[in-house]
Nucleic acid binder design. Structure first.
Lengths: 243, 243
DNA sequence: AATTTCAGTGAACGCCGTTAACTATCGCAA
DNA sequence: TTGCGATAGTTAACGGCGTTCACTGAAATT
């Protein structure tokens, strides 16, 4: 697969230009501002031409969303690689990079992490296969947690409780990441949910009525999160164990 | 202010019918399916007539969002009142009611808790005033936490750390809820963020690639959350205190 | 050189929000 | 009771949208 034909090159360039236009509209006017006619206009084309490259507006937006997932994942991987070998440092750096990207790109964040809509659900549909962007994205956070766990297990709810509550429900996770210790799966789910909650609240302006600035709260919660990942299990029962 | 005139009655009924139509479209087709023409069609009217009641589609959607906020708040208040006098029970019941409503009404959840968009931001704009729906909504969760704290302070990060990190940034919260102990403010922000994260992840299908069913994870996290609100402060320094 | 493939066009259909000009009715005051 | 202003509704129109269809012209293949 050496030489792409001339057609293939042009086609690839056109696809990229269309996506670029879509993203520009996304950034300046939100998802609803993405329109085939506007994109085509910017390219000096007519709208129906875009149907040579994407079967519908929805498909174009879905492709854009996939790209954004990968862009963010690559950003986090770079952040991780810059953070050295210590898993906690990796998680801290990745979390900060995640927040920074999200705050700097609210429209993009909303597209991939916001509410799916009829007409914008192409990504959540084929969602169980391991190649799904969301899955590859999750892996970036799972690995450091797993490293950490292997070095020295941290404080979690008692594993029998975890197995009972989560055991049968982690098939999708297993499918893409193999057999994780249930404590690691829990730590990831819990931690990623908190991280997501913090960032989504900020980006979606859910903090506005309570807090003038969310960064310090974010840092504070980050400390609490990582502290939990470093806390030794006292004997076995941590915070709340009622069985 | 006893007798509403006949005109006022009719007007109120029309406004309600318009909102009902808007909500029906929201539920069946998502936010983008809300259209003045469709609403009018369902009412046996023409679209411009709606401008007698709402200045724009955006204003109508904002009004609907406000109603949904209140509907959810009333639901939570009822749940709280049914839960008895114990604040922890109140919080548990309210949290479960919040999740249940959100899962049963994903479109509505997305409208009030999802990404604001140019053309759908009327609610986040006038957001600092204490009468804002988000603020009244938050109050429902704050009260039980405050009750709990007054009865017996729970485990939090050290207050000097909280004051240093959050102290100057809680004016909006103070504006609507008076002087809260910073530990209570933190417990609310942290807890509400985790609750929001859990529910938003589920409703927005962000769990699909990892977990088959989110209820047990929700219950598990709820236990961890409330356990934290019941944990006595050992001496003073809890999870992670680095200063 | 002939033919197939492919990118792009123009016209059209049926949606949409919004505005403007206009009509009929309702409710109130002289 | 008559008249009049406020109010609720209409039709027509503008520009924008996604999408389809029939068509053209150029590029690639044979």
């Amino acid at each position: 697969m050496a030489a792409p034909t001339r057609r293939e090159r042009l086609r690839k360039a056109a696809v990229a230009e269309i996506k670029d236009g879509a993203r520009r509209l996304l950034v300046t006017g939100g998802v609803d501002a993405i329109s085939l006619r506007a994109i085509a206009r910017d390219m000096g084309m007519t709208a129906p031409a875009i149907y040579r490259y994407f079967p519908s507006l929805e498909a174009l937006v879905a492709a854009l969303a996939g790209d954004l997932y990968d862009e963010l994942r690559l950003l986090l991987e770079t952040a991780r690689d810059d953070a050295g070998a210590e898993p906690v440092d990796q998680l801290l750096t990745m979390s900060r990079a995640f927040r920074a990207w999200s705050v700097a790109h609210p429209a993009e964040f909303g597209l991939i992490f916001g509410a799916p809509t009829p007409g914008r659900n192409a990504l959540v549909d084929g969602c169980v296969d391991p190649g799904h962007p969301g899955s590859r994205f999750g892996a970036v956070f799972i690995q450091p947690i797993l490293d950490l766990w292997r070095r020295s297990p941290f404080r979690t709810p008692p594993p029998e409780l975890l197995r009972q509550r989560l055991g049968g429900r982690l098939e999708p996770l297993r499918l893409s990441h193999g057999e994780l210790p249930v404590e690691v799966a829990y730590a990831f789910l819990s931690g990623w949910t908190r991280l997501y909650g913090l960032v989504a609240m900020e980006v979606f302006h859910q903090f506005d009525w309570a807090v003038t600035e969310a960064e310090e709260l974010f840092e504070l919660e980050l400390e609490m999160l990582t502290a939990q990942l470093l806390a030794d299990p006292p004997n076995q029962a941590p915070l709340g164990a009622k069985g």
